[in-house]
Write a protein that binds this DNA or RNA. Structure first.
Lengths: 345, 345
DNA sequence: TTGTAGGCGTTATCAA
DNA sequence: TTGATAACGCCTACAA
């Protein structure tokens, strides 16, 4: 006879001797005012007493909106993503939304993992997607776009600039790095680029070259690391050192911190002192960078803001005009100067 | 006339001239076999053609299970949590479950944040909770337990050991650390403890004392840091150094890596050389620890496994006997020896 | 200000 | 092997 499990609107209504739609109204902040004050109080009291919890699934089904957003990122284990996710969640929570997370870079390479994740999310009827996976020109992404899913990209753009995105101003970031080195007196500067298949790899290389031109300089060398990883940075730096015969350089701008850390290792192994013989700048300003030796100068990106803003953008697009502006927001980075950069000898 | 939006089972059924229950069966792996082979094929083809996506909210409502788990952790920005989360998601995904994440440590201290998160999750009808928040003896947790929510704790226990948990064997971890130092020749060893309010802070202090006893030694000093943070470690180490007059020590075991890094700073400032004058051991083995100076010896915890196992445990409890064993699983840690430990002078 | 009726898309239980 | 029917819990017109 007794309902031991969570009571429903119906149960509440019965308990109060009113109709469930009345209780429904009383529970909805947007229509509370349609209910007489003292009834409202009684409803609230009863809800508390019986331990009423709204059933989100039922509400979602009924009104066709799940209040849920799909978040796709390569790997939460990569330290740039936690603050992004944190920003996303803070923004979503303010509107009563939840994030559904999927890491798309599987440990074992069990392909088509993104499609699977997207499918699962669509089954959950997510209202939109926040996408921070890194590669440019994805087929699945284009498919998703054509099924007119609501999408905002994070820290990347799509190949054709058709999707709204929140990114760091990589041009500016590279300019900060290059200008800093030039101010210190460097003129022979090399670049350890990230993979061209990544939106940021491409953007930062272009930014580097642009920044050098603005200074009236020519890049000493550009070598591409085959991944954003310490080991790849190490290898790329070794290649760079091998090129020194054909043009000495005194500073290196890396496409991200892991590459810079790998470069640091390679330089240590080669007996090149940092920063006295070689200056080096990273990108992202990941945690603990101030604890490594030497503390790494790096371009700090507003990761948290990036997440927050992207979620805000998506929520706005969801609620406002269906064809709201597909803006691309660029957040300004900031140079964190530490001990890995110094005037050339 | 045309349904431009995602078709339903009904739409599929109509399109095929069969009843929706038949389609429903065909879509359910568990009841597929009840459908004639060629009809099954037709259904699958139609589903593909019309772009059918199951509606999770409807299924959840209908069968009363959301296939969703609530994950509570303090702050995804803390590097111990990403691998835990990754493990959780991998385990959940294998069973078609999704994780709903909430960071409970708010940036601005807007209290009662856990209750709010729990409420939201219960509205989503999560089937259980994975809880990695750190403090012992939480009122909200006890409440949750009494409402018989299914719960598994991660990297912590509750005050009374009533809830199943997956933890690292802190006794063993501390023994590894102490034995390593003793093997190197140390006998005067101090401990920088974590806050007693944290399950791990307590467990590791006890583990340290126990390990020392096993070696027939007495702890040189125990000082408690007021948080798991670099700055707190720095302060605590300063206090420890001030105690040196009352008993010299040559090695320090820290309750976690951040405390150890803070201690490293304090020692550097005090002009005490590591490892020659002082050895130091961290705990957790967080990323980049091999890149700091000196590379930090640390007790590596199986974070990923911890997440994976806890999720597995919860799923089993959900599916099997309602009163399945409330096991506590202890995962063995491993000592990563690096350059911050050496024989005493 | 409150009640009534119908539907959201799926699953479960019967019946055929 | 398939079909019919009734939930699941909530929301939204519309009627009272």
């Amino acid at each position: 006879m007794t309902r031991s499990l969570t009571p429903t609107l119906q149960d509440l209504a019965q308990h109060l001797g009113v109709h469930k739609s009345t209780v429904s109204r009383a529970m909805d902040p947007a229509r509370r005012h349609l209910v007489k004050a003292n009834l409202l109080e009684r409803v609230e009291a009863a809800a508390r007493d019986l331990g009423y919890r709204p059933n989100h699934a039922a509400a979602a089904l009924s009104r066709g909106r799940s209040k849920t957003i799909g978040v796709l990122l390569p790997d939460i284990t990569n330290p740039v993503f936690p603050p992004i996710l944190r920003g996303i969640e803070d923004a979503l929570e303010a509107d009563g939304y939840f994030a559904l997370l999927a890491n798309t870079a599987r440990l074992e390479n069990s392909g088509r993992t993104v499609e699977v994740a997207v499918d699962r999310m669509q089954a959950q009827r997510v209202e939109g997607f926040l996408i921070a996976t890194a590669t440019r020109d994805d087929v699945w992404l284009e498919n998703l776009r054509q099924r007119d899913a609501r999408i905002v990209l994070i820290n990347r753009t799509d190949g054709r600039g058709r999707l709204p995105a929140v990114i760091s101003d990589d041009m500016l970031g590279m300019r900060l790095a290059v200008d800093h080195l030039v101010d210190l007196g460097h003129s022979q500067i090399a670049h350890l680029a990230g993979p061209e298949s990544f939106s940021t790899g491409m953007a930062r290389r272009l930014g580097f070259e642009q920044a050098m031109r603005s200074q009236g300089l020519t890049p000493a060398h550009v070598v591409m690391a085959d991944a954003y990883a310490i080991e790849s940075g190490n290898l790329a730096m070794q290649q760079l050192l091998a090129l020194r015969s054909r043009g000495v350089f005194t500073a290196v701008v890396a496409a991200n911190d892991l590459i810079a850390l790998g470069a640091l290792q390679a330089l240590r192994n080669a007996g090149v002192a940092v920063p006295t013989e070689m200056s080096i700048v990273g990108h992202n300003d990941m945690p603990l960078l101030d604890q490594v030796h030497p503390p790494l100068t790096s371009v700090r990106i507003q990761h948290y803001q990036m997440g927050y803003t992207s979620a805000r953008l998506l929520l706005d697009a969801l609620h406002d005009s269906p064809g709201s502006q597909d803006a691309t927001v660029m957040l300004p980075p900031q140079l964190m100067v530490r001990a890995s950069t110094a005037p050339p000898v």
